[in-house]
Structures are given as C-alpha cells and as structure tokens.
Design a protein around this nucleic acid. Structure first.
Lengths: 227, 227
DNA sequence: GTCCAACTGCAACTTTTATGCCAATACTGT
DNA sequence: ACAGTATTGGCATAAAAGTTGCAGTTGGAC
C-alpha cells in the first residue's frame, strides 16, 4: 500500500484525529516532525509528494518555510499545503503568496480532507500516460507490453517498471535512489549495484551492445536517463 | 497579458462579481458558456489550463461533465475546479470523486479566489522542467543538461553543481568557503585550491580561453562570480 | 511432490571516469 | 618588487559504473 509520501509539520498532541494519524491510516507514507528546523533538508532528501504545514503550530515560520521550499529548485516539486484554523482572507492570500499550492481551513471533515489529498496525488501522477512511444520503442502500460520496431520484447516485471519509469519522463535524469523508490518501493532495501544490473539487462533486451547507449544514458554521479 | 486560459461554465447573471468577470479583469483568457453541452469539445479543442464548473447552475450535470473530462485522455490535462454554495462534506467528496482537482465553496473573497487560481496556474507551469538562462547558456536541472548556444556541453557532477550555484545567483560573489559548503557539503574537507581547479575545468568547458573570462569572473582575494 | 526454467539480488571483480592535490608558473594589488 | 593569490597541467587515487557468476526463490509442468 504505497499511496505517496507526505511530510507533515505539526505539534503532536496525540489526538487520533491529527493529520499524521489520519494520513497514516489511509496508507500514506508519513514523515512527521514537530518543528520546522529540518523541513527543508527532509524535503530535499525525501522528495515527498506533499509537504503539510500546520500554521496553528508554526505561525510565522510557516510562511518562511514555504517560501524557502518554493525557492529551491529541488524542493519546489513537492506540493505544499497549509492547514490553519484562521480563515480570514488575509492569511489565506498570504499563504498562497508564500508559494503554497493549497490552503485548507479547519475544521474539516476527514472524508473531505482525504479526498483533497487524493485529488492532489492524482494530479501529480496524471502526467504519466498509458502508452509511450519513443523512437522505435512502444510501451503499453495496460497490456504490459513493449515493442521495438513492431516486434515484441519480453521484459520481466522489474525490467518493465524500470523502462516505464525512465520512459515516462524522457530526458529526465533519475537518480538510483529515485529509481529504487519508484520501482522497488520505499521500504525495500536493495543495493545500488542491483539497479545497474537491471539497467544492463534492460539494455541487452533493448538490443544495446555498443557504446554509447542509444536508449539509456548513464549520467555519471547522477543517474540514468532515457534517450 | 496572457495569464492562462480558463473555461467557465456558469449561468450569467450579469453580476460584476461573477467568476467570469473577475477572471477577465485579472487578465485571464476567459471562455464562458452557460450550459455543459459543449464543455467537452471546448476543452479538447481549446485546451484551457483550467475548467471551472459552477455547480449551483449545473447541478447533476456537473459531476457528469467532470467525469467525462477526466476520463478523456486529452481533456484530463486541464485542471477542473468546482465552485459551489453547498458546503456539506458529501457534495465536496463527491466532487473530488468525480475527478475534480479543487473544490471552492461560496462565498469567497475575490482576493482569495484569485490567489487560488494563481497558485494552480503556477503549479502547472512548474511541472515544465525548469531552466536557467544566462547569456547563451541554458541550464536544465531535471535533465541535468547544459547547453551553450544550443550545443550541449558535457559537465561532470561537480562541474554541474558548481555552474548551477554560480548561475543561480549571478552577480553574487561566492567565496571559496561558500562554494565548498554548497557544492561539496558541510562536512567534506577539500582544499580551497581544489575549487580553483574546478573553476578552471568549468571555464574550459564553457569555452573560455582568453582573458578576461566571459562567464566566470575572479574577484581577487574574495571568490568568484558569474557574470 | 520433483524437476526445471526464469527471475532476482548480491558480492567480487574489472573498467571507466572523475576528483583532489601538487608543484611550477603567472598574475594582483599595494 | 614583493607577498599574497590565482591558474594550470599532470598524475595518483578514489569513486562510480559495468560485468559476471552464483545462489536463493518462485512458479509452473509433469
């Protein structure tokens, strides 16, 4: 059950209706912190899909953290949601001006809350399409098939996921860490070298024997990129 | 002034505070229709960034239109926002379940409303990979690519980080200490001289052979800066 | 159940590439 | 001109990536 990673900044009062608890129960991978000190570092390292800032416990810092995240080229990818009891327009506008992507005011029903989160995650993942064509390669997610020049290529489960990931955002460089998270899942511990091995096997099946690779490029010190 | 294209479905009552009026005034490219018949076609053809559905005038149809858009391969790209006076949780949840990306309840202040819209547009733009352009140099972070005058330049990991650091705040003078911290990280101990070496290698790759350097300026006794 | 083939992950090893430092040299500002 | 800085090419070394063989698993086929 891996719905996405959420970094939450709020005072823990142990209430079972706290945001963290709710999202954990819903199956999100929750990282919870009580103050804003590590938020930036955590965001950069963990790349959560969502960062939630509880303004009721953060106050002034909330805006600042948000701005800092949105000014950073890596952290900015995470969606920042502010949660607050204040519903005066000024606070809300200020939240958005700090770069927040959404602003939710308390109180809110659990169902509404989780529906909003789902909508946001959905939106993030939607950029990926079901069928991808790159050069002479065709990838069909639904049928789980890959063709090269019209001829089917037999890929294993992992190879397929790996190829799909890389091809879903061609030109984008994926670090091994990212690959591990997206292909193997967050909890699994697998060596970096194993990623290489799978890349090699994939390259073989794609018919890459000589250098430089036509499809999967290695970016030394960084990761891999398709095309 | 083109802030983005918005397709709005609402009953026109001529009120100056109607959504269409407000967004027009704000400089959006507004397409306004009164019923849901053409919404699907318009969305596919016009590809608006945002489709706003006024549930107060659409009722039942609202959900259906939304679902139809979100089931469509092309139309799903547009962000769908529902606007409604009903603020019961059930309606809202149902909205999200129909695939809506956001749900705004009336009444709302104009500033808050426009701030939300701006945030959404911002988010859409952010998905496109971010580039820094300085003179004839282009730096693409997601793709980890650098181009000079359209031609790609191959940089190593450190060179890339270094260039990015300098270029991200041009004119700013970076001391070697600062560079070490940002590129190598706090803990690592590496000589100041090493920074020089990397500057040299970077300059070479940027095609700097003669003095004074066109891109990276040396501030004697202080550090470096990107022009 | 037993056998077999396919898949996977890892360790050990090789190859490739990048990095850090040195020492000689050139440049700066005073 | 001098002392402090910066530049540079070369080189040993470190680090990253590629490769290979093997062993543990799994899931049929029989």
């Amino acid at each position: 059950m891996d719905k996405g990673k959420v970094l939450i900044v709020e005072q823990q009062n142990g209430s079972p209706s706290s945001i963290s608890k709710v999202l954990e129960e819903e199956g999100y991978n929750v990282i919870s912190v009580e103050d804003s000190d590590n938020v930036y570092d955590l965001t950069v390292n963990e790349k959560p899909e969502i960062v939630m800032l509880d303004l009721d416990s953060l106050e002034q810092e909330g805006w600042e953290v948000c701005r800092k995240l949105k000014d950073d080229y890596e952290a900015r990818r995470s969606v920042v949601i502010m949660v607050s009891s204040k519903e005066d327009e000024e606070s809300i506008v200020r939240g958005f001006e700090s770069g927040a992507d959404d602003f939710i005011t308390r109180p809110f029903g659990r169902k509404e809350f989780t529906a909003r989160i789902r909508a946001i995650i959905r939106r993030i993942e939607k950029n990926e399409s079901k069928k991808i064509k790159v050069k002479d390669i065709e990838i069909d997610l639904d049928e789980h098939k890959v063709k090269k020049g019209g001829k089917p290529i037999d890929l294993t489960y992992i190879q397929f996921k790996l190829l799909y990931l890389l091809a879903s955002r061609r030109e984008n460089v994926f670090s091994r860490k990212e690959i591990l998270e997206k292909v193997w899942g967050r909890k699994v511990y697998v060596t970096n070298r194993t990623v290489d091995v799978h890349i090699k096997r994939l390259r073989e099946k794609l018919g890459e024997y000589k250098y430089p690779s036509q499809y999967i490029e290695t970016i030394h010190g960084t990761g891999y990129r398709f095309l």
